[in-house]
Each structure stands twice: as structure tokens, then as C-alpha cells.
Design a protein around this nucleic acid. Structure first.
Lengths: 294, 294
DNA sequence: CAACTGTGATAAAATATTTTTATATGAGCA
DNA sequence: TGCTCATATAAAAATATTTTATCACAGTTG
């Protein structure tokens, strides 16, 4: 069996047209016919129904079954190629979600710089869910990911590096400004300004709102944390944010959540379990795993 | 790139000897040399170190990396072939652990027989952990599995069909015979007769013993449930068994476990998530999912 | 309804790839 | 030094794939 034939079959499963597949790969149409025929002979089963009257091709059950595996095989092959190509440059493709990049990563950067590792990073900014997917496809080799629960995944190893509670932030003029802590249920009648950020903040908010039994009244949503903070400072609403991203200079008051189990913002280091790690990547992981000095 | 070359490479990664690989596949030795060379040229990287002095071959880092993917690709291909071959016979390879086969499956068998499904089963007996692995490799298409916690797996879909508590069984002469229920901590000084069965019973016992803070004193272990019961009946020790496998005729007394969360014996129906299901298999799943009449 | 169009199949020839045979090379070892 | 084990290489042979040219079929169109 031939990988090229599998590629043709895979394309045919999507395009459902021999001629189109031939053009896509810049080969003649009989090439595709013969490729499929070879597969059908080798597997001793019909993979496609050529319905000439409806001018359409359909996959048989076996064809669908086979296509499942073919898609996986081709994905794996692509991943292999990507990894090997990437290993040629002394670079690690490093995924960093914006919040972590802004508020957590700088604390690590100095140590990485000392070990001469920074210049080998090829940093990609994206949301945590996107990055998880990109780890799988090999677009990213190593990533810091934000989440509210520990990440478990069959293909991706992840270990928690750091965690911070989520907090409520309010304007200094807000009635709750002196309260120090609040239970989420107390906030049923408040207006919220929220972050449009990936899936972590919304997920944490849902995690709180569900047992509290109300849907927060969101008056404004922004992807930008400093915008969020200034909206809160001007008392347009109250905010919900990782403690990590709150600093004394922000002109907002942070309130602890008094609920039984307030959600935590977890930062994990993640990579493909089955990737054979380059010396560079290993050094990087070791450094990132070192606990931060308080 | 050629699947045959990948096969050769995969074998070479294990055998570490070109000549041996050639013999294994009944081809000449240069065939292997050229196959590896083709891969190295196509991937533009060295995959092997030919250390002539130590008469040994080593994989380079890239070679190891590549081998990871190759192993997956070849596994997937084999799975595809197995599934297609299996679909030719109108048979479903059905995995059934002994306990479930003896005590649960008979309740379902009549209904399956009514729908003419029994004759299409190719039943394999094995422990639940073995069967889970065989589901993955395609040796089994559908299985009933026993477990103490719900099964979650990236590749295998599993849904709980039935559950039964674990119980303590004692001889009618045993001091606890009239107790009706016991807390596991009360059993610290008892002798136990246990089942050698796969992983489910031992796992459940561990789950109980850990919080209770003692290791049960096991005086005898058997793979056979009826042996277990008669040992208990003769008061050689007390037993620990799924309620499913206990019947009034057994001459043993079943005691409920009074602990907060006594482990349950769960029976789940499991199959590969990405398998395209034959009509036969679908019918079978539908029938197995019907709840049992009480 | 005859010609036309889009789509896939087939035969034979042309090309490309893989495998073999025969032989070389290189390192350790007796 | 010569022998053995193990891999590499060149050239020829054997296979496999692709192309060109053409056919066949079912709709569609003028």
C-alpha cells in the first residue's frame, strides 16, 4: 500500500470527484482511478460507489471506515514532518496566551535569559484552547496554558506551575470597596464588565454563577484587561479577574471570593507526551518548572 | 514516501540490524539500505547512526522522534485492515469478562436471541483491562467491561449499563451473619478470601481499605467464584464480592457495606469512538442499551 | 433526437521506482 | 594477514505508477 494512494483517497473522500482530485495534485485523471483501484484490490473491498446517474461519488461503509484511519495516518505523517523540520532550526515553538504573557511570563523571562534560552523561543500568542489544539497538530511544541481545572489529555502532558484565585474588582467608590471579601451570591444585582478572553475567564464565571443561581448582568465586554480595569475604576460595573492580573497601581479594589471553592486560575506547562525532546526543549522545560522566587 | 519503507524502518528500530530486517521481510539486504536512504533523503535528516565499530545501530534524536509517529501510523493501518476484514464476515467480536459473562450476560441473551443477534457474536473471554486494550487494537469491536469508576478514554466510548454494590459475604456461622450491614473498619481483624479476578475486585478492595487504614489479611486467593463462595461458606474467611454474583442458593450471607461511599461494580458497554458501525453492530448496541426488566 | 458535456474506466506505452545480483568497503578479531 | 560480519554501491532486472489516447455512460442542450 502506498501513501500517495492514501492521499488521493483522502482528497477524494472530500472532493468526491476524480477529475478534481487529479487537478489538485497535478496528475492525470487515470492516476486517481488506478490509485483507488489499487486500494480496493489490496483491501479486497469496495470503497466508493460510483453513481453515474447522480454524477456523485459516495463512500461505502468500508470506505468511511477506512477514511477515518487514513485521515489519522496522514495527520500523523504531517506531524512527523513538521517536528523534524522544526528540529532543524534551534527553535522551540512556544505558545503563550496574552494574560499569561503579560502578567506571568515576565517573571520567568529573566531566568530564561540567563540560560540563553530566550533567543531560541519562537513565541506564538493565542488563547489557551487554540494553543491546546496547536500542540496536538505540532504547530506549537511547548505552551503555557490557562485553565480553571487541571488539564488532562491523552496526548498532551500538562503540569501546573502556578495558581491564583479569581477575584472581584470594584471601583474605590463602590459600596463594597471596604468589604474585603464577598460571596458571589451577593452580586446578583450588580452590573458586570467582563473579559472576552478565550475560554478561561468565561468558564470560571460560569463555574461560579451556576451554583449561585443567577446569570451575571454583563453591561460591557472587552478583550483588553486595561480597558476592563479602567471601566471598573470609573464604576461602570464590577469586574471578575485573576489575582495575577491585578496590581496595586490599578486604582481598583480587589475583593476575595468568600465562596466555598472559588475557582482558581491555573497556569500549566504543556507539551506532547510522545514528542522526543531536543536538548534545548528539555533545558527549557527544566527552567520553566523551577518554582518562582517569592 | 512509502509505507513499505516505514515498515522496514520500524523493524530496524527494534532489530537494529539491516540484514536481520531483510531476512524478516524476505528481501535482500540492499533493499533495506535503500529504503532507509530514501526516508533520510525525503525527510532531509539522518535517522540512524551506523556505528561500525560497535557493530550496532542507534537511532538519532530525529530517528526516535520519527519512529514514534511511524509506530502510530502502522498501528492505525493494521487497525484499518482488521476492521475491514472483520466487516466481511457478519460477526461482531464481542468481549466479555468472566464474571459479567456468567452473572449478567445471560439476562440479556434471551433478548439478543429473539433478534437473531446471538449467532453473529464472536465472543472472547478476557479480563476488563485486557479487553480495553483489545478494543483499541481492533481485536475486539464491542465489549462489556467491569470497573469501579466510570470509564473515560479518548478513543473508547463507554456507557454504564448496570451497577451493583460490592458486598461482604460471610458464613452463616460467622458472628456477623445476623448483622445485615458492616462498616469496613470493623473488618480489620478478619481473614479474607479474595478473588484473583482481573483488576476490578482488587481495585475496589483497595478503594475501601485505604481510607479504613488497614490492609486486609488475605488467607486465600482464587480465580473461581464458586470456590470463593464455598471457602466462605466453610468459614475459612470472609469474602468481598459484587452483589451481582451472589444468589440466595449460595449458602453465604451477604452484608451491606455501611461506609459512606461503598464502591460499585459498574458494567459498561464499550466500543471504539471512531469506528464506523455496521448495521449489525448498531442493532446489537441498541439492544444491549435497553434496560433490563426488573 | 442528435450532438454535446462532464465524469470515470481502460489499454498500451512511457516513466519512475524498487529490488536484486554482484561486488566493494570497513571494522573487529583470530 | 586473512576471515567474518555488517552495510554501501553500481548496474541490471523486475515492478509499479503515470500518461496519452480513447472509450463508455448518463444527463443535458439546441
Amino acid at each position: 500500500m502506498n501513501l500517495r494512494d492514501l492521499t488521493y483517497f483522502d482528497a477524494l473522500a472530500t472532493l468526491k470527484n476524480y477529475t478534481a482530485v487529479a487537478q489538485r495534485f497535478h496528475v492525470s485523471q487515470p492516476t486517481i482511478t488506478y490509485a483507488i483501484k489499487r486500494l480496493e484490490i489490496e483491501l479486497d473491498t469496495q470503497l466508493l460507489l460510483r453513481d453515474r446517474s447522480h454524477r456523485q461519488i459516495e463512500l461505502t461503509t468500508n470506505g468511511q471506515q477506512f477514511e477515518q484511519h487514513v485521515a489519522l495516518i496522514l495527520h500523523e505523517l504531517k506531524l512527523a514532518r513538521t517536528e523534524i523540520t522544526a528540529s532543524r532550526q534551534q527553535k522551540v515553538k512556544f505558545g503563550l496566551p496574552p494574560i499569561i504573557g503579560t502578567y506571568y511570563f515576565p517573571k520567568l523571562a529573566q531566568r530564561l535569559a540567563q540560560h540563553g534560552l530566550i533567543s531560541h523561543l519562537n513565541t506564538l500568542e493565542a488563547g489557551s484552547s487554540t494553543l491546546l489544539q496547536q500542540l496536538r497538530t505540532g504547530e506549537v511544541d511547548l505552551a503555557l496554558l490557562g485553565s480553571t481545572t487541571p488539564l488532562t489529555d491523552q496526548l498532551i502532558a500538562a503540569e501546573i506551575l502556578y495558581q491564583q484565585p479569581f477575584k472581584i474588582i470594584v471601583s474605590p467608590e463602590h459600596p463594597l470597596a471596604q468589604a474585603g471579601k464577598v460571596a458571589f451570591t451577593q452580586l446578583a444585582n450588580e452590573n458586570f464588565v467582563t473579559l472576552k478572553e478565550g475560554f478561561v475567564h468565561p468558564a470560571a464565571l460560569r463555574q461560579l454563577a451556576q451554583p449561585a443561581g443567577f446569570t451575571p448582568n454583563v453591561v460591557y465586554t472587552t478583550p483588553d484587561i486595561s480597558v476592563l480595569k479602567s471601566m471598573v475604576a470609573e464604576n461602570i460595573g464590577i469586574g471578575f479577574l485573576t489575582a495575577l492580573a491585578i496590581s496595586p497601581a490599578d486604582n481598583v479594589i480587589a475583593l476575595e471570593l468568600a465562596d466555598v471553592k472559588p475557582p482558581q486560575f491555573l497556569i500549566s506547562l504543556a507539551y506532547r507526551k510522545n514528542q522526543v525532546q531536543s536538548a534545548l526543549q528539555q533545558k527549557l522545560i527544566t527552567q520553566l518548572q523551577q518554582p518562582l522566587k517569592a
